[in-house]
């Protein structure tokens, strides 16, 4: 059984379990809701202010994508961690990993197939939510910039793949899904605060991608300025999965 067959098994498993509902539905949900929230936000704030008269400019397509990326970067990625944390750890706990690995399959291929399966789901979910958000933004706001929003979504995809890799790494090295979730959430927290600690982190660490998404939407940065962060994040993702599968191959099952 080669990697292709393993990946097929992994994709089938995603189809059969709840994962197929949760991630695409959450992403699609925020893709649809964010433009609507952005549209009604000025009116909402005005009605909350009550007696005080406040003047707010009407929201634009920037706000729509602003909401979109804010939601996905927080709740979206948290959902990715929660649904991915059991990927390897659950199979270890249930003993099904042992069954699969009783056949002539390397443990590296086992982890790699899980990683690829999860990333396939992630790409599908992000793509569909982007389409939904762009369509709603197009309907609700007079102007949209498809190029900029596509670039920003690409950055988000790279960041989401990093978080997914981090979670699979945590799942490979721990024995329980709760432990894996704890490590992954801690890692997620650290990556999100690193950019505010030092200038070089703000430019080169994975967390920098989050800020760059909005800068690209607002037109204050180009995708070129994100290239180092993209390269470093991709290398880190590959390194995490490689390290995870290395530690997994040394474990007693």
């Amino acid at each position: 059984m080669k990697i292709k067959a393993l990946l097929k098994k992994e994709l089938l498993e995603i189809l059969r379990t709840y994962k197929i509902y949760v991630i695409p539905v959450i992403f699609l949900f925020f893709g649809l809701l964010s433009p609507i929230t952005a549209k009604i936000m000025p009116d909402l704030l005005k009605s909350m202010a009550g007696e005080f008269k406040i003047e707010l400019p009407p929201s634009t397509w920037h706000d729509s994508y602003g909401q979109f990326f804010k939601n996905l970067n927080q709740i979206g990625l948290l959902a990715v961690i929660l649904t991915t944390m059991g990927t390897v750890a659950d199979e270890k706990a249930r003993g099904t990993a042992l069954l699969v690995l009783a056949r002539p399959i390397s443990r590296h291929a086992f982890i790699l197939s899980k990683w690829m399966g999860n990333i396939t789901l992630l790409i599908f979910s992000i793509a569909s939510s982007y389409v939904a958000c762009t369509y709603y933004t197009y309907v609700l706001f007079p102007q949209t910039n498809v190029g900029a929003s596509l670039e920003a979504t690409l950055l988000f995809l790279i960041y989401a793949v990093f978080i997914s890799s981090l979670t699979i790494f945590a799942s490979s090295i721990t024995a329980s899904n709760i432990g894996a979730g704890g490590i992954a959430i801690a890692g997620f927290f650290v990556t999100s605060i690193l950019p505010s600690l030092h200038k070089s982190f703000a430019k080169y660490s994975p967390g920098a991608l989050t800020a760059l998404e909005m800068k690209i939407i607002n037109g204050s940065a180009t995708i070129g300025s994100a290239s180092w962060a993209i390269i470093i994040t991709t290398i880190l993702s590959v390194a995490l999965v490689t390290l995870g599968s290395y530690i997994f191959s040394k474990q007693e099952l």
Partner: peptide
């Protein structure tokens, strides 16, 4: 706007039913 909210509500209901 309410018409646009329909698909959102539909997604909520699908997830709830599942």
């Amino acid at each position: 706007l309410i018409k646009l909210l329909l698909p959102v509500v539909l997604l909520e209901i699908i997830l709830m039913v599942l």
